[in-house]
Write a protein that binds this DNA or RNA. Structure first.
Length: 295
DNA sequence: CATCCGTGGGA
DNA sequence: TTCCCAAGGAT
């Protein structure tokens, strides 16, 4: 029953050892070639592993290198993205591949700073690629790691809505000095959050640091403060855009406006979303006014 | 810094 | 059924 922050060495040891035994076999983990890691990370942004698996395999089969992807129209990436959601990620991955070919000799860059310049690659993804693909020492702070730290170290049920300075400093202070160990730590803490220290009904009986966990020691206090706001869905532009995209994505060729219109009844919202999709580059207009994925 | 951006499955 | 949320990023 620790009264204060658990000793980092003990955390490192136990969580990394646990990872050695319980780590999942994942295609981007078993063969962590940089491009594979990068593709997986973009796909995994806000999308569960099980849904990513089949799309990832097909993607890598078709586009084994950034150059392979960059050589095709962005619309092909959007179609191959399927129903993973947030299709702008497909556009960003295509743009990133193009940038990798143009500016990095076709090789996924290895440093956090270079990775951060790529479209679709933010703080988390840059750190993840540097760490998982290149074994670099990087602060990998995703939703899983944040939850683990919130509970074990801070003693609260959930992390704050956004990463603040103090939280980043904590994560930095916890990162092992040794490069290899830092990379193992990043993967291990993520996996612990994904498999054991889950958002709902955590499996504390299977946790290697349960006896060091401040949240557990405190008796699992419920989250207090403002309620955690979920995202609305029904009737939103997001739902509308998704419906419109599905029609074009699942069609063989260009789709007539009337066909697209049938998928969303609210005309004003439909037009607004159509405009935004064209503006985003997720859709294109043919000369005769039909809708296609971008060429 | 808050909001927007898809989708589907489990509790 | 409804609600929650899953390896975030861009603006």
């Amino acid at each position: 029953m620790p009264a204060t922050t658990p000793p980092p060495r003990e955390l490192h040891e136990r969580i990394i050892d646990w990872f050695g035994v319980h780590r999942r076999s994942l295609p981007w983990r078993d063969d962590p070639a940089p491009w594979r890691v990068m593709v997986s990370e973009l796909m995994l942004q806000q999308t569960p592993v099980v849904r990513v698996l089949p799309v990832f395999e097909a993607w890598m089969e078709r586009w084994p290198t950034p150059a392979d992807l960059a050589a095709e129209p962005s619309g092909e990436a959007v179609r191959a993205w399927g129903r993973l959601g947030y299709p702008r990620r497909a556009l960003r991955l295509h743009a990133a591949a193009t940038a990798i070919v143009a500016d990095h000799g076709g090789e996924v860059p290895s440093t956090y700073e270079e990775l951060l310049t790529l479209p679709g690659v933010g703080d988390y993804t840059a750190a993840a690629i540097a760490s998982f693909a290149y074994g670099r020492r990087a602060v990998v702070l995703d939703t899983n790691v944040r939850r683990v730290f919130a509970r074990v170290v801070e003693g609260v049920q959930y992390p704050a809505p956004t990463v603040r300075r103090a939280e980043r400093d904590l994560a930095t202070s916890l990162l092992p000095d040794d490069e290899d160990r830092a990379a193992a730590w990043a993967a291990a803490t993520m996996e612990l959050g994904a498999l054991v220290c889950t958002a709902r009904s955590p499996r504390c009986e299977a946790c290697p640091v349960a006896d060091l966990c401040r949240w557990r020691a405190a008796g699992y206090p419920e989250h207090d403060g403002p309620p955690r706001r979920g995202q609305a869905w029904h009737g939103t532009d997001r739902q509308c855009r998704g419906a419109l995209m599905a029609v074009v994505r699942d069609a063989d060729g260009p789709v007539a406006p009337e066909v697209v219109a049938a998928s969303w009844s609210d005309a004003a919202q439909r037009e607004r979303c159509l405009d935004s999709l064209l503006d985003d580059g997720l859709l294109d207009l043919t000369p005769d006014g039909r809708l296609t994925l971008p060429g």
